[in-house]
């Protein structure tokens, strides 16, 4: 039996812009990611001090999830383990790996820090989103050369068909030195974007991913 799945919301963060549900929500003045994401955090009045402790990959994905799930409570809607988080990127945690490596390069100036080391795993981002939104469901982090809409649709669809998830946050969150790019989709059996229902399929996902902002 096949299920019909909908993209009930999406969020894109790239080029100093934040877009969610087809609306451009914020344009930052700052160019550098560190400054831009802080500006966005203040603009959206997030109020979550742990944000400042996160590495850049987690800040990026966390912010995208904040706007994707604005006014939603998925723990209430789908139960604590009903929502899956399936993410992918190309650089894994390499951005933070480089910073950690600098802290151990010199044996005479050796300062490995557990608070940096813990972020040398890309799935920490899923932990941050899970903590914030009280989500206990299916988790997986994949590394792929580029955004692979076919894999995403196939993998997420079978999770619904086999009733492993009833709702899914999926997408691409990439952070590599000065380059960043995030697109998150909220996938549900029902739901609609503000200008009509958008089916969760390869073409629609590619269209959203390729939006120029």
């Amino acid at each position: 039996m096949s299920v019909s799945l909908h993209i009930s919301n999406f969020c894109l963060i790239r080029n100093n812009h934040v877009m969610a549900g087809k609306h451009l929500l914020f344009t930052g003045k700052e160019i550098a990611f560190q400054d831009f994401i802080k500006e966005a955090y203040q603009h959206f009045k997030i109020g979550y001090p742990k944000f400042y402790k996160m590495d850049n990959l987690s800040k990026l994905g966390f912010m995208a999830a904040e706007l994707l799930l604005k006014d939603r409570d998925l723990n209430r809607d789908y139960g604590k383990d009903g929502t899956g988080i399936i993410l992918a990127n190309a650089a894994a945690s390499l951005d933070t790996d480089r910073n950690y490596q600098i802290s151990i390069n010199d044996r005479n100036n050796y300062f490995p820090s557990p608070s940096v080391f813990v972020y040398t795993l890309p799935n920490i981002l899923m932990g941050e989103i899970s903590i914030r939104h009280h989500l206990f469901g299916e988790n997986a982090f994949f590394i792929q050369k580029k955004f692979d809409s076919l894999f995403m649709v196939e993998y997420v669809t079978q999770l619904f068909e086999k009733q492993i998830v009833a709702c899914c946050i999926t997408g691409w969150v990439e952070m590599d030195a000065d380059q960043y790019d995030a697109v998150l989709f909220l996938v549900e059996k029902t739901g609609q974007l503000n200008d009509g229902i958008t089916i969760f399929n390869v073409r629609n996902i590619d269209d959203i991913y390729c939006l120029k902002i």
Binding site: L121, N123, F142, I143, Q144, K145, E154, Y155, Q158, I164
Partner: peptide
């Protein structure tokens, strides 16, 4: 096919096997 890489901390190995078993079960 392109390789699929799983990097999910210390549960990576189980997630990789789970993913593989599901992709076969889904007929892919």
């Amino acid at each position: 096919n392109d390789t699929l890489v799983v990097s999910n901390a210390c549960v990576s190995g189980l997630v990789a096997i789970l993913t593989g078993a599901r992709l076969i079960r889904a007929g892919l």
